[in-house]
């Protein structure tokens, strides 16, 4: 004889609880934190390099790098001048709040103004796992194509800022910016957006200004 009992609980509620703890740790330390999400090759690490390179004299930056197996990305962040910590997910397709929880004690939190968490390159799984960072930043790129908001609505929904990288390639690749932006607008109305190129530096200033404003407001 079955007895049905109501539950109504979010499937990843345990992750959300740990994410809330991470946020408290970061807030107590006065750190502003961002979670970089993107497909592989969109330019997460390049944007980190440019950001660190241009801001490292003004603010103290740490990078936590999530990768399936290698430390190549953390090495690049460290070479640019950030304190970098590597998380190898051992095959997992996303970072979760527990992984960040375990990585935070490896940093001198009192010495950090800005923490950038580089998620695993993937447009599907990271969308479901809140980490506890203050802002979720999605990095799109022109070569990926203009249909990505429609194909991966979950990740475009619920981000706090959007970087559109590789705009220097716009003359060479058919990319309907208006079509792309209409999908984004429906999924995340009024989303703050930064078209830029890590290669040429175009548009980077607006991104860096926004980031510095967020850091100061913590």
């Amino acid at each position: 004889m079955n007895n049905r009992i109501p539950v109504i609980e979010k499937i990843l509620s345990a992750n959300d609880r740990i994410a809330a703890e991470n946020r408290q740790v970061l807030d107590r330390a006065g750190i502003f934190s961002v979670n970089f999400m993107a497909s592989p090759g969109a330019g997460k690490t390049s944007l980190i390099e440019q950001t660190v390179h241009r801001l490292a004299e003004r603010i103290k930056i740490a990078v936590i790098d999530g990768d399936i197996a290698t430390s190549l990305d953390a090495d690049r962040a460290a070479a640019a001048g950030a304190v970098a910590v590597q998380i190898n997910t051992g095959g997992d397709c996303h970072l979760d709040a527990v992984m960040l929880h375990e990585a935070l004690p490896r940093l001198e939190l009192g010495d950090i103004d800005l923490l950038i968490v580089e998620n695993v390159g993937n447009l599907v799984c990271p969308a479901n796992f809140q980490l506890g960072t203050h802002k979720n930043v999605l990095i799109a790129s022109i070569p990926e194509g203009d249909d990505k908001p429609y194909k991966y609505p979950g990740i475009y929904r619920g981000v706090d800022a959007l970087v559109i990288n590789k705009i220097d390639l716009l003359p060479y690749i058919p990319f309907r910016m208006d079509y792309f932006r209409r999908g984004v607008e429906i999924l995340s109305p009024g989303l703050v957006t930064f078209p830029l190129s890590c290669q040429t530096g175009e548009g980077l200033d607006a991104w860096l200004d926004w980031l510095c404003l967020q850091v100061r407001s913590v």
């Binding site: 079955n2 007895n3 109501p6 109504i8 479901n128 209409r182 429906i186 999924l187």
Partner: peptide, 26 residues
């Protein structure tokens, strides 16, 4: 995702974001 009637992008998502355990039989 535009409105099929008036092509507006002022559109609200009213269903499709559910992600929960509703009940169990014990």
């Amino acid at each position: 995702f535009d409105c099929p009637n008036c092509a507006s992008t002022r559109v609200k998502i009213i269903a499709g974001e559910e992600f929960y355990l509703e009940a169990i039989d014990i």
